[in-house]
């Protein structure tokens, strides 16, 4: 896996944490290229994309979420992100529960998911306030076996896999999302 991490020579920005002080991490997320994420999702038994409230501020993120959905990835919408998604024809598995509640449910191996098909094994995240998502990733890292993948512009140290830090280069972030979707 190490060879598939983003490398400096490939002109990816460094994996700079969304918050310099969020350093007390025993195991850091691997900053990975889109192709790695594609493979992880393809191998997954029960993947899901969770969208967050930042979709209300960035229409591009809504477009990408819609494309994920078109590729057959189910969506759990949080933070009000269901509204623009539903307007574009997506039917999320859930719209009213918060990421906080959903994470609590995911931590319980008895939960069958919103679709009753059993535990989600690979969870993708798109469009969250970084500090809010970070804590949820931390809970899942410590107390579950779920593979978490952050697709946000910030590098998330507590995820299992994360995009590198793309805050300074939004276009690259969009390109990488595009690449993941195209690969699915």
């Amino acid at each position: 896996m190490a060879t598939e991490r983003v490398k400096k020579e490939e002109k990816y920005p460094v994996a700079r944490r969304y918050q310099v002080a969020d350093v007390q991490v025993s195991r850091e997320a691997q900053a990975v290229k889109p192709e790695v994420i594609v493979r992880l999702v393809k191998k997954a038994k029960h993947p899901v994309l969770i969208t967050g409230g930042q979709l209300l501020k960035d229409e591009k993120l809504v477009e990408y979420a819609v494309k994920f959905h078109e590729k057959g990835i189910p969506i759990i919408a949080t933070g009000g992100s269901s509204k623009p998604l539903i307007e574009k024809g997506v039917k999320p598995q859930s719209a009213v529960f918060t990421l906080h509640q959903i994470t609590q449910y995911m931590l319980d191996p008895d939960w069958k998911g919103f679709d009753d098909k059993g535990a989600y094994d690979v969870v993708l995240y798109l469009g969250f306030l970084p500090y809010y998502l970070s804590r949820m990733l931390s809970a899942l890292k410590h107390f579950s076996k779920i593979t978490t993948i952050s697709l946000d512009e910030f590098y998330h140290p507590h995820a299992r896999f994360s995009f590198t830090n793309l805050t300074a280069n939004k276009e690259m972030h969009y390109r990488m999302l595009e690449e993941v979707i195209n690969g699915l």
């Binding site: 195991r27 931390s138 410590h142």
Partner: peptide
């Protein structure tokens, strides 16, 4: 209403036997 924990740090350093790596419970 089951308690839910979202650690900010994976370690504990509250006493001199530590610091301890508490990750993954």
């Amino acid at each position: 209403y089951e308690p839910f924990y979202a650690p900010v740090q994976d370690f504990c350093n509250l006493c001199t036997m530590g610091p301890c790596d508490l990750s993954a419970n």
